[in-house]
Amino acid sequence: SQVHIGNTTFTFDNPEKAQKYAEKYAKKKGLTVQKNGDVWTVE
């Protein structure tokens, strides 16, 4: 599972961890999370 934030990609061994990280980061920065398969993009 991966989380894309700008030009940075974070890889997680667990989809739940990836989703939590993406949502927490997005909330903190006032951004949105797009999910595509097991990839979350914060923008």
Score class of each variant (00 low, 15 high):
residue 1 S to L: 12
residue 1 S to P: 14
residue 1 S to N: 11
residue 1 S to W: 15
residue 1 S to D: 04
residue 1 S to G: 12
residue 1 S to M: 10
residue 1 S to T: 11
residue 1 S to F: 15
residue 2 Q to P: 03
residue 2 Q to V: 14
residue 2 Q to H: 12
residue 2 Q to Y: 14
residue 2 Q to N: 07
residue 3 V to Q: 02
residue 3 V to N: 02
residue 3 V to I: 04
residue 3 V to K: 02
residue 3 V to C: 06
residue 3 V to Y: 02
residue 3 V to G: 02
residue 4 H to N: 09
residue 4 H to A: 08
residue 4 H to D: 05
residue 4 H to F: 09
residue 4 H to G: 02
residue 4 H to Y: 07
residue 5 I to A: 04
residue 5 I to F: 06
residue 5 I to H: 03
residue 5 I to D: 02
residue 5 I to C: 08
residue 6 G to N: 09
residue 6 G to R: 10
residue 6 G to I: 05
residue 6 G to F: 13
residue 6 G to S: 06
residue 6 G to K: 09
residue 6 G to C: 15
residue 7 N to H: 13
residue 7 N to Q: 08
residue 7 N to F: 12
residue 7 N to L: 08
residue 7 N to E: 08
residue 7 N to S: 12
residue 7 N to C: 15
residue 8 T to N: 11
residue 8 T to L: 15
residue 8 T to Q: 14
residue 8 T to V: 14
residue 8 T to I: 14
residue 8 T to A: 11
residue 8 T to P: 01
residue 9 T to Q: 07
residue 9 T to A: 06
residue 9 T to P: 02
residue 9 T to F: 15
residue 9 T to V: 15
residue 10 F to N: 01
residue 10 F to E: 01
residue 10 F to H: 07
residue 10 F to Y: 13
residue 10 F to Q: 04
residue 10 F to P: 01
residue 10 F to M: 10
residue 11 T to Y: 15
residue 11 T to M: 13
residue 11 T to D: 06
residue 12 F to W: 04
residue 12 F to N: 01
residue 12 F to Y: 03
residue 12 F to I: 03
residue 12 F to C: 04
residue 12 F to V: 00
residue 12 F to E: 01
residue 12 F to D: 01
residue 13 D to Q: 11
residue 13 D to A: 12
residue 13 D to I: 08
residue 13 D to E: 11
residue 13 D to W: 12
residue 13 D to V: 08
residue 13 D to R: 07
residue 14 N to E: 08
residue 14 N to L: 08
residue 15 P to F: 06
residue 15 P to C: 12
residue 15 P to I: 05
residue 15 P to K: 05
residue 15 P to L: 07
residue 15 P to Y: 07
residue 15 P to S: 07
residue 15 P to E: 09
residue 16 E to C: 11
residue 16 E to F: 10
residue 16 E to M: 11
residue 16 E to I: 11
residue 16 E to R: 09
residue 16 E to H: 09
residue 16 E to S: 10
residue 17 K to E: 15
residue 17 K to M: 13
residue 17 K to A: 14
residue 17 K to G: 07
residue 17 K to V: 12
residue 17 K to T: 13
residue 17 K to Q: 14
residue 18 A to R: 00
residue 18 A to I: 01
residue 18 A to V: 00
residue 18 A to G: 02
residue 18 A to W: 03
residue 18 A to L: 01
residue 18 A to E: 00
residue 19 Q to P: 01
residue 19 Q to R: 14
residue 19 Q to G: 03
residue 19 Q to K: 13
residue 19 Q to W: 09
residue 19 Q to E: 09
residue 20 K to A: 13
residue 20 K to H: 10
residue 20 K to S: 12
residue 20 K to F: 10
residue 20 K to E: 14
residue 20 K to C: 11
residue 21 Y to H: 04
residue 21 Y to W: 15
residue 21 Y to E: 03
residue 21 Y to K: 00
residue 21 Y to Q: 02
residue 21 Y to T: 04
residue 21 Y to F: 15
residue 21 Y to R: 02
residue 22 A to K: 02
residue 22 A to E: 00
residue 22 A to D: 00
residue 22 A to T: 02
residue 22 A to M: 05
residue 22 A to H: 00
residue 22 A to V: 07
residue 23 E to H: 07
residue 23 E to A: 07
residue 23 E to W: 08
residue 23 E to P: 01
residue 23 E to L: 14
residue 23 E to V: 06
residue 23 E to K: 08
residue 23 E to S: 05
residue 23 E to F: 09
residue 24 K to Y: 14
residue 24 K to C: 15
residue 24 K to G: 11
residue 24 K to I: 10
residue 24 K to D: 14
residue 24 K to S: 13
residue 24 K to W: 15
residue 25 Y to F: 10
residue 25 Y to Q: 04
residue 25 Y to N: 02
residue 25 Y to W: 11
residue 25 Y to H: 05
residue 25 Y to V: 08
residue 26 A to V: 01
residue 26 A to H: 01
residue 26 A to Q: 02
residue 26 A to N: 01
residue 26 A to E: 00
residue 26 A to W: 03
residue 26 A to Y: 04
residue 26 A to S: 04
residue 26 A to C: 05
residue 27 K to W: 07
residue 27 K to D: 05
residue 27 K to M: 08
residue 27 K to F: 07
residue 27 K to P: 00
residue 27 K to V: 04
residue 28 K to M: 13
residue 28 K to C: 15
residue 28 K to A: 12
residue 28 K to F: 11
residue 28 K to N: 07
residue 28 K to R: 10
residue 28 K to H: 08
residue 28 K to L: 12
residue 29 K to N: 12
residue 29 K to T: 09
residue 29 K to E: 06
residue 29 K to H: 15
residue 29 K to C: 15
residue 29 K to I: 07
residue 29 K to W: 15
residue 30 G to T: 04
residue 30 G to S: 04
residue 30 G to F: 05
residue 30 G to W: 03
residue 30 G to Y: 03
residue 30 G to I: 03
residue 30 G to K: 04
residue 31 L to V: 06
residue 31 L to N: 01
residue 31 L to K: 02
residue 31 L to G: 05
residue 31 L to S: 01
residue 31 L to C: 12
residue 31 L to P: 01
residue 32 T to P: 04
residue 32 T to Y: 05
residue 32 T to R: 10
residue 32 T to Q: 08
residue 32 T to S: 09
residue 32 T to L: 08
residue 33 V to T: 03
residue 33 V to D: 00
residue 33 V to F: 07
residue 33 V to I: 09
residue 33 V to A: 10
residue 34 Q to K: 13
residue 34 Q to V: 14
residue 34 Q to G: 05
residue 34 Q to Y: 14
residue 34 Q to P: 02
residue 34 Q to I: 14
residue 35 K to R: 14
residue 35 K to C: 08
residue 35 K to N: 06
residue 35 K to E: 01
residue 35 K to Y: 10
residue 35 K to S: 05
residue 36 N to P: 01
residue 36 N to I: 15
residue 36 N to G: 03
residue 37 G to R: 04
residue 37 G to E: 05
residue 37 G to V: 04
residue 37 G to N: 06
residue 37 G to P: 02
residue 37 G to Q: 05
residue 37 G to H: 03
residue 37 G to C: 03
residue 37 G to I: 03
residue 38 D to G: 08
residue 38 D to A: 08
residue 38 D to V: 07
residue 39 V to F: 08
residue 39 V to T: 12
residue 40 W to E: 01
residue 40 W to Y: 10
residue 40 W to T: 02
residue 40 W to F: 09
residue 40 W to A: 01
residue 41 T to H: 10
residue 41 T to M: 10
residue 41 T to W: 09
residue 41 T to S: 07
residue 41 T to Q: 06
residue 41 T to I: 14
residue 42 V to K: 00
residue 42 V to H: 01
residue 42 V to C: 04
residue 42 V to P: 00
residue 43 E to G: 14
residue 43 E to W: 11
residue 43 E to N: 10
residue 43 E to T: 14
residue 43 E to L: 14
residue 43 E to P: 05
